[in-house]
Amino acid sequence: MSWIALALLCAFALASADAAAKIWLRDFTASELLIVRLCLPGLLMLPLLGGLPPLTELPLAFWGWMAALVPLELLAMWLYVAAIRDHPLSLTLPYLAFTPVFIVGVAWLLLGEQVSARGLLGIMLVVAGAWVLNSTHAHRRSWRGWVAPFVAMLDERGSRMMLGVAVLYALTATLGKGALGYLPPESFGALYIAVLGSAVALGIVLPHPSRLRRLAQHPWAVLTVGGLLGIMVFTHFLALQQVEVAYMIAVKRTSLLFGIVYGALLFREPHLAARLPAGMLMVSGVVVIVV
């Protein structure tokens, strides 16, 4: 299977897992959803760890990067699951497109990297998509009417939460470059997810084992969401074996388009005619920035 097909399948599986969790697991706490989203994929990654060097041989600097990454990643996932559980998919998932925008901003602030013309175009496309996403709030009576979509974006709690996720992902992507200096991307990814799953098991499951009993009351829902996330993880790494990370991530961001469609079809979220083109604009901005 080609890397594009694998990346699209990865995006579809991710959006499907989000929709399935919103349908069947919406009464679960964010901490319980972390168990489903990280512990199960972490278990699936264990067979892929056989080719890694002994963990004791990895330098202390690597584990320093991991110690910085894991808390930020867990906070991002906690905000992510809470946002899609409590708020419309079409007003949360698209804001993940701001992750590369924030990465450009971090590189400019911390590293002094200049923004290229292509990068600036990508940022403008993402921002334009955010405006179109909330364009129902726009009016022509005054200049404030043209700014109203951005105000609406910040007024929507779910949108703010997902923007926070995008900021955290920008930080983890930047910090992750340090850890990637010690392992190839596919090996690092498998280990990273396994470590995240272990952290959730130790920090959330072990102190409160009753949460597992609660999850066990909904076995098919948990297994469906976990299975979809497992497909997402495996196709992610299969695609990475065929193409550079930037290309794969750009295609994977089409998950926000699948999420918008799921929101309209399954949850009757309004304004599909505006939100789907908005998502397309944002994805095109991501492609321009990362590719």
Rank of each mutant, 00 (worst) to 15 (best):
A194S: 13
I260W: 00
R253C: 06
A30R: 08
V147W: 14
V165G: 03
A264Q: 03
Y262M: 02
P53R: 12
P47Q: 13
S16W: 01
S210T: 11
V195Y: 08
C10S: 12
L133Q: 13
G178A: 05
P94Q: 14
G227A: 07
A97I: 14
M77W: 01
M162L: 08
F28Q: 11
G176P: 06
L212M: 00
G64Y: 07
G112R: 15
L121G: 04
Q114F: 10
A20R: 09
A179D: 01
W63C: 03
Q242V: 05
F62D: 02
V222H: 08
L40W: 14
G176F: 01
P184M: 06
L206R: 05
W131Q: 03
L183I: 03
L9H: 05
R213I: 10
D155A: 15
R275F: 14
V115I: 13
W220C: 04
N134H: 11
G230H: 13
Y247K: 15
V147F: 13
A166V: 07
W220E: 08
F234S: 10
A250R: 10
V290I: 10
W78V: 00
A68M: 09
G279H: 12
I289Q: 06
W146G: 06
Q241I: 13
V127Y: 00
V288L: 12
V288I: 11
R275H: 11
I249M: 13
G197F: 07
V195R: 05
A19S: 07
W65R: 01
V200G: 10
R118K: 11
V195K: 05
Q114P: 15
L34K: 10
V151T: 14
H208W: 07
A67T: 13
L125E: 00
S159L: 11
I289W: 12
E244R: 04
L75R: 02
G189A: 15
H137A: 15
L89G: 02
P41I: 03
A190C: 02
I260Q: 06
M248D: 03
M77D: 12
M280G: 15
A194H: 04
P41V: 03
A166I: 01
W146S: 06
A250Y: 07
A97E: 11
S142K: 05
V147T: 06
I289H: 02
M282C: 00
M162H: 14
R144M: 04
R275K: 11
V115Q: 04
A67D: 05
L202G: 04
V200A: 14
L89W: 02
E269R: 03
I260P: 01
L240E: 00
G105R: 07
V132A: 09
L238P: 03
L91G: 09
I123V: 11
S198Y: 01
S187Q: 15
I23T: 06
W3V: 07
S90H: 11
L191Y: 14
Y80P: 01
A68N: 06
L240M: 08
L60M: 08
A82K: 07
A138I: 09
L72A: 15
V288W: 08
F258L: 00
H139Q: 09
A61E: 08
V291R: 07
L121Q: 08
A190W: 09
M280E: 12
P149D: 10
L223R: 04
L14Q: 15
